[in-house]
Design a protein around this nucleic acid. Structure first.
Lengths: 235, 235
DNA sequence: CGTAACCTTGATTAAGATCAATTCTCGTGG
DNA sequence: CCACGAGAATTGATCTTAATCAAGGTTACG
């Protein structure tokens, strides 16, 4: 695999050529179709992944079939690193499992598996990478903090409004007629599961926000008609 | 401060005498009464803390006054480390804020502030500590994953049952008449805010579990009458 | 023993989930 | 180019859980 691609992964951004070669040896490219599971939370832990192409959802299922999406992982982002670092000493002994399920949610999703045991050996000789991991984890913790805050302190309408704002802050899309908008890159079903609700409620929420003249939903595009009101709604 | 005390903090467990001395220089002991706030999420970031004595809750408040507790932090555990590691380069430039509020919830709570900027300098000369931080963060991430899973996938009754089981797994208390039990070290109000509900609902849930003969609540002690049923309830 | 903080209980309300139909959208093959 | 069918999205009616509102009861502690 092209070494340059590895460098786009935050963890690996500081590595030199020699280290990238070693990384290449312990990684495996895997391809999935939309809807394929990459791993289940019942499977033994092999290592962590990054997305080369497409998109992956990390999710949990309750006993009675309810789904909640913890993360949506896009290109060059990693997932399932946590178990690797939880208990250094014991990784060789214990039978670790993946902490959640992962599914490809785009056609032709390609992911790269970095084999766990071998990566731990590699990391010892590249001390520089450790701080990258710390920093990556810190960002993740911040994100989860925010996620919990949204889920516990806000109702569905606020969460939806907040999602649109956050997404637009990241993408900054502007339509030809000068309106800010976002494009959903996941299904509304998945969006609902991420926002801690269900399809139907999300649909109704969109409609109510449309009726109030705050947004306009057109398929996968959501146009922001009144950003001031949207911000008020979100807080 | 006694150097031995530092060693009980997971992050610092591998440090040598010299390093502990340096740590001592950049730390500040602070004392709080029950109900005192240690910091608010509006304050500029000074550094992270560990609890020397007592207990601390990390919480968020919504605009309309609803509270959710993210963590309960006990002795020799750290809190508020995340902002320090999120953006190494920019800590000197940006005005960082604490990501949540912290309050002492026990009388005579003592915490130690480790000053952030100075700690970053210290850490560069002690590479060994980095992996400790990674590992600590990984544990924290696991905990938050679990927390989100509970909040989104389970109803209040399941969460309460799950809490009792988890707490008992950690403490393993057995009463003189041979019954497993747990002792709440926080108020029921705080427990409710941690479990994503309110006092009244928690109270009713306890009563229902009592009526079903699963537990017995006596003040701060909760006796497990039927652990099999409790496990069934929790899943 | 009196007061404040904490906890419990009951009645009511509201948000959102569930159940049940449609309708819409889009890719595929005739 | 159109028809078909499957998955995705919408909509309405109803139900359930847990929050809110309101009032007492308990406990801890000076």
């Amino acid at each position: 695999m092209d070494k340059e691609l590895y460098k786009k992964v935050y963890f690996f951004s500081g590595l030199n050529d020699d280290e990238l070669d070693k990384l290449n040896v312990i990684s495996r490219l895997k391809k999935f179709k939309k809807g394929d599971n990459i791993f289940f939370d019942t499977e033994p832990y092999l290592g962590f992944y990054f997305v080369l192409n497409g998109m992956v959802k990390i999710y949990k299922i309750s006993k009675d079939g309810k789904e909640h999406i913890l993360h949506i992982v896009g290109e060059f982002n990693t997932f399932a690193e946590v178990p690797l670092f939880e208990n250094f000493g014991s990784i060789y002994e214990n039978e670790f499992r993946y902490p959640a399920n992962a599914m490809a949610i785009e056609e032709d999703t390609e992911v790269v598996l970095i084999q766990g045991r071998q990566f731990l050996e590699l990391i010892e000789t590249t001390p520089n990478m450790c701080m990258k991991i710390v920093s990556g984890f810190a960002k993740r913790l911040r994100h989860m903090n925010h996620h919990i805050e949204e889920l516990t302190l806000k109702d569905v309408t606020k969460r939806v409004a907040g999602f649109i704002l956050t997404d637009h802050t990241n993408t900054k899309k502007i339509s030809p007629d000068n309106k800010p908008f976002i494009t959903l890159n996941i299904s509304k079903n998945d969006l609902a599961a991420y926002l801690g609700t269900i399809q139907e409620t999300l649909s109704r929420t969109f409609r109510r926000l449309e009726e109030e003249g705050i947004i306009e939903v057109e398929g996968k595009n959501i146009y922001i008609q009144d950003i001031k009101k949207l911000k008020e709604t979100a807080t």
